[in-house]
Simulated scan of single mutants.
Amino acid sequence: MTRPPRSADPAERILDELLLRAPRHPAPPALRARLRLLVGPAARPAPRPRAWAALAPALAAGLVLVAGGLLVGRAGREGGEAGALVAEAVNDHLRVLARQQPPDIASGGPHQVKPWFEGRLDFAPDVPSPPGDDVRLKGGSVGYVFDRKAAVLEYAARGHAATLLVFRAGGRPWPEARAASRVGFQIVLWRSGDLGHALVSDLPAPELAEVAAALGAGAAPRGAH
């Protein structure tokens, strides 16, 4: 398969990657009939490049919702609980990238973001301070990791988007490996008491390990799989 030109826009890049990895199956007859009714007999002109760029985030969000379950399911078969957790973290990061709205609480610093979670979560999440000028806390929102609520913290790290998920880890097996790679993203996992943390970004693995250590992960990860 010919790989499309790599886009500089993050949403279009995510869409390209998901389209390349999406399974291809013939559409059922009923679906083809419904599409014909929606589209009509006349061919519609292709959108202009600017229109495509505007639609890319919404299309990427839709593909994330469709492909997310496939990613988690396949990871669960390949790597058990560890694979499922890694895939869940990547899916959550993709949802953040595809979302067109700003964070629910824009960052004025951890001292503003952390109190915002009171009453919205049943635990007090860690909201690490940015370790330097090259890492910035953009804000936070409430999301889910599997069936439990999570703090979703958005960072700009060395010119890349990074998502830190903080959630209750009790009751779930915790993977021994502390670093992983999935569909072009790096993931660092660590625990602090009962809280689990998953940091996801497309930063190179050594750089993400440094950011994770500065955010509270402790020692550098033992290696990716």
Rank of each mutant, 00 (worst) to 15 (best):
A161C: 10
A8F: 07
L71K: 07
V211M: 13
P5M: 06
A151L: 09
Y155P: 00
L164F: 02
L199G: 03
G184P: 08
P131W: 00
A53N: 04
R99K: 05
P175A: 04
E176I: 08
P47Q: 08
L15G: 08
L97Y: 03
A212C: 11
Y144G: 12
S107Y: 01
A51N: 05
V200S: 08
A27W: 11
F117I: 01
L203W: 01
Q112S: 12
F146N: 10
Q112A: 15
G62Y: 06
P125E: 09
A46N: 10
A220K: 15
V142Q: 14
L164C: 00
R32T: 04
D16F: 12
R74T: 00
V145K: 00
G143Q: 13
R178L: 03
G108R: 07
Q101I: 01
D194I: 03
F185N: 13
E118A: 15
L153I: 02
F167T: 10
L38V: 01
A209V: 01
L31Y: 05
R74F: 02
A212M: 07
A43K: 07
P47W: 07
L208M: 04
S129Y: 02
R191Y: 00
F117V: 03
R44T: 10
D9G: 04
G40V: 01
H93C: 13
A156T: 03
G140I: 02
E17I: 08
A61Y: 04
V39K: 10
R32Q: 13
V96A: 06
A205E: 11
G218F: 07
G218R: 08
P26E: 14
G143H: 12
H197K: 05
A217W: 01
G109H: 00
A162G: 07
I187F: 07
D126T: 13
V66W: 11
V113E: 04
A157D: 03
L215H: 07
A60S: 12
